[in-house]
């Protein structure tokens, strides 16, 4: 360790020239190439190439590609919220249940409202977003005000929200969904399904806000050093509250997309959502300890399991293998990341 606390520059101006020089393209590429999203992106491309080569007619068909994207879309919306939460050093296990709860309440309200129009759908969206946000605010309140750990708070609301959803429906799915919403769930624009377009828009907005705005910057700062952020005048509790609200809001949004796609409230279908979202986020290079992560990484992290599952089915391999493989891949990815970090970090 050669400490260079404050190297007196031989000539101040020379130093400044070095410091002020815009980041070289080569250096930028090098930095990007060393990042987890890049490695994982390569793995994703290799998987796609592999399956396309073996089964060009089935895997690479437009129908199948469309399916992969559709399968990934709802999870990706949730994973965008999870990326924010995890960069801030938090956890949200409740998103699957919040999705179900929001979907159930929205479906119920749309049913009561009666007419089948875009207005009904709009009302459904408002209700779902409000329900999701309310659960998110509740999580944030428990975590920041009551100081119950994120793991326990969101574990609690995971159970509570699902239980409440069963109460609303008496335990059976609501299968009456407005046709206008189903049209959204199955329709496409220029050959691209609406769900995919909407998910892409949400991801891009999520990425822009995370990487280019003060809100995003504070998310990284809070995750990297909460106490230091507090000292620097950042309202850490307030920011965390907003992030849990955002995670809930996105779960509510995903609920409507899920309703549109499946035409039912899928009470039983989302128990694994939070863990799948966390898996995707971690695969994408977001640190469990907070402070690091990207939306593009999360996108890659969502698609690796999706492509693998789809490819296995097409190859006639039991799709359960995907779960086995992804389980080990997550561990390997985090291990590789730790090794890389230990090399890069000087203490």
């Amino acid at each position: 360790m050669s400490g260079d606390a404050a190297i007196p520059g031989p000539a101040g101006t020379a130093d400044a020239a070095g410091l002020l020089a815009p980041q070289g393209l080569g250096r930028k590429l090098k930095a990007a190439a060393a990042s987890s999203p890049f490695y994982m992106g390569i793995i994703l491309l290799l998987l796609v190439a592999f399956f396309s080569f073996l089964h060009p007619a089935t895997f690479a068909s437009s129908y199948n590609v469309r399916n992969i994207f559709l399968d990934a879309s709802v999870l990706l919306i949730l994973a965008v919220g999870t990326t924010y939460i995890m960069i801030a050093g938090g956890f949200d296990l409740s998103i699957g249940s919040v999705l179900v709860f929001s979907g159930v309440v929205a479906a119920q309200v749309m049913l009561q409202f009666g007419t089948d129009s875009l207005l009904t759908v709009a009302l459904g969206f408002v209700v779902a977003l409000a329900c999701g946000t309310a659960w998110g605010v509740f999580n944030g309140f428990c975590i920041t005000r009551l100081r119950v750990s994120a793991l326990i708070s969101t574990l609690g609301s995971m159970g509570a929200a699902l239980g409440a959803a069963y109460l609303v429906t008496d335990g059976s799915d609501i299968r009456t969904v407005p046709n206008a919403l189903i049209a959204l769930g199955h329709g496409s624009v220029g050959g691209v399904p609406w769900l995919v377009v909407i998910t892409a828009v949400v991801s891009v907005i999520g990425g822009v806000v995370l990487h280019m705005t003060r809100f995003g910057r504070h998310t990284y700062l809070v995750g990297s050093n909460p106490e230091g952020s507090r000292r620097a005048g950042i309202n850490v509790s307030g920011h965390l509250l907003k992030l849990y609200a955002l995670s809930g809001l996105l779960a509510g949004f995903a609920a409507m997309l899920s309703l549109g796609r499946f035409s039912t409230t899928t009470l039983e279908g989302h128990a694994n959502d939070p863990l799948e979202a966390i898996t995707a986020v971690v695969l994408g290079g977001t640190a469990l300890t907070g402070g690091r992560g990207t939306i593009i990484g999360t996108v890659v992290g969502v698609f690796i399991p999706a492509v693998l599952a789809n490819g296995f089915i097409i190859m006639g391999i039991q799709p359960f293998w995907q779960m086995v493989v992804i389980g080990f891949v997550v561990i390997a990815a985090v291990y590789a990341d730790q090794i890389k970090r230990q090399k890069g970090e000087r203490l």
């Binding site: 990284y220 990297s224 050093n225 952020s229 907070g290 402070g291």
Partner: peptide
Amino acid sequence: SVCPDLSPSA
């Protein structure tokens, strides 16, 4: 009180 995951200017 610095954030190790961020750049000097951040």
